[in-house]
Computed example of a mutant assay.
Amino acid sequence: MSPALDERDRIRAAMARILDGTPERSNGALTIVALAVEADVPRNALTQRHLDLKNDFYERVKARGGTPDVEARLRKRVVELKKTIANKNDEITQLRADVQGFLAENTRLTLENQELRDVLSGNKANVTPLRPTPNPDR
């Protein structure tokens, strides 16, 4: 697939919009991916066909002295959210373990309750416990 005739112009215009902080199509990040989205070109147009424009973009970003405030805030928020997710995953693991314990205790109490009801009602249990009978010879 051959590149569009106006591809370089679109890349230059997208560079200007991103660096001015007025992106129209992308999130405005100072990355080649955002530049490609903003210029409406495939990423390989910047990494293979127009290396000079890619290098120019990176030089201009470097000259600005860092990332914009919006991007820094978003990156910080991503870190916070990853910590929250890790904490929630730990909590879910603990709750799953607790559920197993509660199920076992519920089963035990249900059986004990049934035994007590049988004793109170005078009904004999379906199962007769095996107890050693006294041996008169001993």
Rank of each mutant, 00 (worst) to 15 (best):
M1C: 06
M1W: 11
P3I: 13
E7K: 03
D9S: 12
R10Q: 01
R12G: 01
R12P: 01
M15I: 04
M15Q: 05
L19R: 04
G21E: 09
P23M: 12
E24M: 11
E24K: 14
E24Y: 00
R25L: 13
S26V: 10
S26G: 10
S26M: 07
V33T: 13
V33D: 07
A34C: 14
L35R: 14
A36C: 10
V37A: 02
A39E: 06
D40A: 15
R43A: 08
N44R: 15
R49Y: 11
L53Q: 01
L53Y: 00
L53A: 01
N55V: 09
N55L: 12
R60M: 07
V61C: 07
K62D: 15
K62F: 05
G65S: 03
G66L: 10
G66K: 11
P68S: 12
V70C: 00
A72F: 04
A72N: 08
R73I: 13
R73A: 13
R75F: 12
R75A: 14
R75T: 09
K76A: 15
V78H: 10
V78N: 07
V78W: 04
V79P: 00
E80R: 06
E80W: 06
L81Y: 10
L81P: 01
L81G: 01
K82W: 01
K83M: 07
K83E: 15
T84V: 15
T84F: 07
T84Q: 10
I85Y: 08
N87V: 04
N89I: 06
N89T: 15
N89K: 15
N89V: 10
D90H: 09
I92L: 14
T93Y: 06
Q94K: 04
Q94C: 00
R96E: 14
A97G: 04
L103E: 13
A104S: 15
A104N: 04
A104C: 05
E105W: 01
N106T: 13
R108Q: 15
R108Y: 08
R108G: 05
L109D: 00
L109P: 00
T110F: 01
T110K: 05
E112A: 10
E112T: 03
E112S: 03
N113L: 06
Q114N: 14
Q114R: 02
E115R: 13
V119Q: 05
S121P: 01
S121E: 10
G122W: 05
N123P: 00
A125Y: 02
V127F: 05
V127Y: 01
V127W: 04
L130D: 14
L130T: 13
L130I: 12
T133F: 03
T133W: 03
P136W: 02
R138Y: 03
